[in-house]
Amino acid sequence: MILIVIPAFNEEDTIVDVIKSLVKSGYNKILVVNDASTDNTGLIAEQLGVKVLHLEHNMGAWKATQTGIRYALQNNYKQVVTFDADGQHLVKSLSKLISCQKNDDVDVVIGSCTERGSVLRHVAWGMFRFLSGVEVKDLTSGLRLYNHKAIQVLASEQASLIEYQDVGVLLLLRKAGITKSEVKVQMEKRKVGGSRIFHSWGAVTYYMAYTTVLCLSKIAKTYSFESIDINSESL
């Protein structure tokens, strides 16, 4: 049983089309994590009949995503797909992720679209691949399919120490022995707004500094999995 987790912050202009496209394609188990939106994102999602979790404070995309992953673990979902609320991800890509996971017998599948993004984004990807040793072409893709083993790891307290759903999460999964594949997909351009990382030099500078330190540390001792029992249902 697959749960579609959609972290959403001020996405009232796109959330209707995103949810309707998923439902039309037969994906009825949908969770919107409303990341303390100041618009009507959460209300609109509820009116469309999907489950909505409302965060009291804005936690950022990864923390909102992790909230959805923890919900999936608590409610015995065996697979989670993380799906953006801004209209970039296409429903037709989901069958590719599902098929890839079955064929490759891996824990995680990443939907990769390397044609998107600015020159700065591609420079950052290249640098972080080199520093971290993570062999993923599209490091910042939020379109991912996680199986139960990966869900258990990402629901842990250690995973909550991470700030972005890219290099840190991938390093954490690798340290836990989680296997992965990457499948090429198409993505649309954002209809409204822009990247929350690459929208300003200040945000980019912080992101680059944070992720560089993370890469160089190769996940510090605070991210150790020595105390994690990934077979436990109590996470």
Score class of each variant (00 low, 15 high):
Lys20Asp: 12
Asn28Phe: 11
Lys24Pro: 01
Ile6Asp: 08
Gly42Tyr: 04
Asn34Gly: 00
Lys20Ser: 13
Leu3Pro: 09
Asp35Glu: 06
Tyr27Arg: 09
Ala45Ile: 02
Val5Asn: 00
Phe9Val: 14
Ala8Arg: 09
Val33Asn: 02
Val33Met: 04
Gly26Leu: 10
Asp17Val: 01
Lys20Val: 08
Asp39Val: 03
Asn28Val: 10
Leu22Trp: 10
Asn10Arg: 15
Ala8Val: 11
Leu22Cys: 10
Ile4Val: 14
Val23Ile: 14
Ile44Trp: 00
Phe9Ala: 14
Gln47Ile: 02
Ile6Asn: 09
Asn40Asp: 15
Val16Tyr: 08
Thr14Pro: 05
Thr38Asn: 12
Ile6Cys: 09
Ser25Ala: 15
Ala36Arg: 12
Lys29Val: 01
Pro7Leu: 10
Ile15Pro: 05
Ile4Gly: 03
Ser37Thr: 09
Ile4Met: 11
Val16Thr: 14
Lys20Cys: 09
Asn34Gln: 01
Lys51Ala: 11
Gly26Pro: 13
Ile4Thr: 08
Leu48His: 07
Asn28Tyr: 11
Val33Cys: 03
Glu12Asp: 14
Thr41Lys: 06
Asp39Thr: 05
Thr38Pro: 02
Leu31Arg: 03
Leu48Ser: 05
Ala45Ser: 15
Val23Arg: 14
Phe9Arg: 15
Lys24Phe: 11
Ile6Ser: 08
Val33Gly: 02
Ile19Lys: 06
Gly49Cys: 06
Ser37Asp: 07
Asn40Val: 07
Asn34Leu: 00
Gly49Val: 04
Ser21Gly: 10
Ile4Ser: 05
Leu31Trp: 01
Ile2Arg: 11
Ile6Trp: 07
Ile2Phe: 05
Pro7His: 11
Val16Lys: 10
Lys51Met: 12
Val32Gln: 01
Ala8Pro: 06
Asp35Val: 03
Glu11His: 08
Asp39Trp: 03
Asn28Leu: 13
Ala36Lys: 13
Leu3Gly: 07
Leu48Met: 12
Leu3Trp: 06
Gly49Ile: 03
Ile2Tyr: 09
Phe9His: 15
Glu12Ser: 14
Ala36Gly: 07
Leu22Thr: 10
Leu22Phe: 10
Ile44Thr: 12
Lys29Asn: 15
Ser25Asn: 15
Ser37His: 04
Val18Tyr: 05
Val50Asn: 07
Gly26Asn: 13
Asp35Gly: 03
Ile19Leu: 07
Val18Ser: 05
Lys24Cys: 05
Val33Trp: 01
Leu48Glu: 10
Val18Glu: 06
Lys24Ser: 14
Ala45Tyr: 00
Asn34Glu: 00
Ile19Trp: 05
Ile4Pro: 03
Ile30Gly: 01
Leu31Phe: 03
Ile6Leu: 10
Lys29Gly: 00
Ser37Tyr: 06
Ala8Gln: 11
Gly49Met: 06
Ala8Glu: 09
Ile30Gln: 01
Leu31Gly: 02
Leu43Arg: 14
Ile44Pro: 05
Asp13Gly: 11
Asn10Gln: 14
Ile19Tyr: 05
Glu11Gln: 15
Ile19Thr: 08
Val33Phe: 03
Glu12His: 11
Asn34Lys: 00
Glu12Ala: 13
